[in-house]
Design a protein around this nucleic acid. Structure first.
Lengths: 206, 206
DNA sequence: CTTTTATGAATGAAGG
DNA sequence: CCTTCATTCATAAAAG
């Protein structure tokens, strides 16, 4: 059964600026926001429960544990299936990524040498990784984050939307941090939570 | 296990109606929408993978299957867990493409930042486009062009350097060479994360 | 509608 | 740090 919201994207598109250069934004009502929160929350809960179930299983059945050992250890979450035929470049596992992101968010934009080692050790518990990988990751993360800023910056023509973001400490995700995308299909889009295809799963095509 | 959703929402409140009786709603930027999609998508993917894993386990251990049977059949979980992806990508209009191609052909293979802005402005007259789009286009164009060169011109100039992995000397891109990620198998099952609170969602105009 | 191809976008790594 | 390149992923468009 599909979730309701997929069929009920009832946000409206409003033009913030009255002139023809105005920007269109998605509008959500409080209720919709709440629903979203609920749904995400549900996912979180489910995930936790499933993980617990999995733990129970593997702890009670060595055989199963072994069998799936190399599968759940990280591949479970090994995101998009990629060939195991000698990957040339490191790809962070979701867990590693999450950790990296959280560290990045902590504002310590200064990845010191020692810090790198520290982080690397930590991440090694969740998959192969090297200090260079960590170093590069932070460099790239920083650079790209910054670039996004400057791209979205050209907001001289201030709109009616007061940029009253009272989160000066937030340095990465800016509200106006989006870019225009051509949308040839003027049809209702809103929350396009669709299901094109579940593809890219854990199909490790070796 | 919760993600940063709680901290992300930086929507602004705007009054949809100009008059003082207007309703206040939350506004989400495309960026935020994208973040949301990503997060939900992650949950969906993880859930699906966990379910798959669970299936593998239970198929080998009836006991475990029974044990967990009433657990995953919980009202919480009802059907379809799917990936929610809603990214849409920019598609250049013929006119834009024409201009881009001509610029590319002018040999100025070095699209500087200022140049990008310039080009973007130009192309904006022929359809929606962003600097990032232009940047990406040139990056891709050059890469593709270069690749074609090396493929169509297998000059023996550099002897046996083709001791590469895989088969780079293969005629252009060979689809069969790399992984197939499509699996159009119509699956009408899986998990569904339903919640009493969710079901009576936003469709009720209350 | 399903499968394949073309190509926009994301990102790890290297160079300066 | 910033820019550039190479490879990969995902999806719109085309082909069947």
């Amino acid at each position: 059964m599909m979730m309701e919201w997929e069929k009920q994207p009832q946000q409206e598109e409003v033009m913030v600026n009255g002139n023809n250069n105005g920007i269109f934004v998605k509008v959500m009502t409080d209720e919709q926001m709440e629903v979203l929160r609920e749904q995400i929350s549900v996912y979180a809960t489910i995930c936790e429960q499933l993980v617990e179930m999995h733990k129970s299983l593997t702890s009670h059945h060595d055989l199963a544990g072994v069998r799936l050992g190399n599968l759940y250890c990280d591949p479970l979450v090994t995101s998009v299936g990629h060939k195991i035929t000698g990957r040339q470049r490191w790809t962070p596992t979701p867990v590693q990524l999450q950790i990296l992101e959280s560290i990045f968010d902590q504002g310590n934009g200064t990845p010191s040498k020692q810090k790198i080692k520290d982080i690397t050790s930590e991440l090694l518990q969740h998959g192969q990784i090297s200090e260079t990988n960590v170093y590069n990751w932070f460099q790239n993360r920083r650079a790209r984050s910054k670039r996004k800023q400057q791209v979205s910056a050209p907001n001289n023509a201030e709109s009616e939307v007061e940029t009253e973001v009272e989160s000066p400490n937030e340095k990465k995700t800016k509200p106006e941090d989006f870019q225009f995308q051509q949308n040839p299909a003027p049809r209702a889009e809103g929350l396009c939570f669709q299901n094109p295809q579940m593809s890219s799963g854990m199909d490790s095509t070796d």
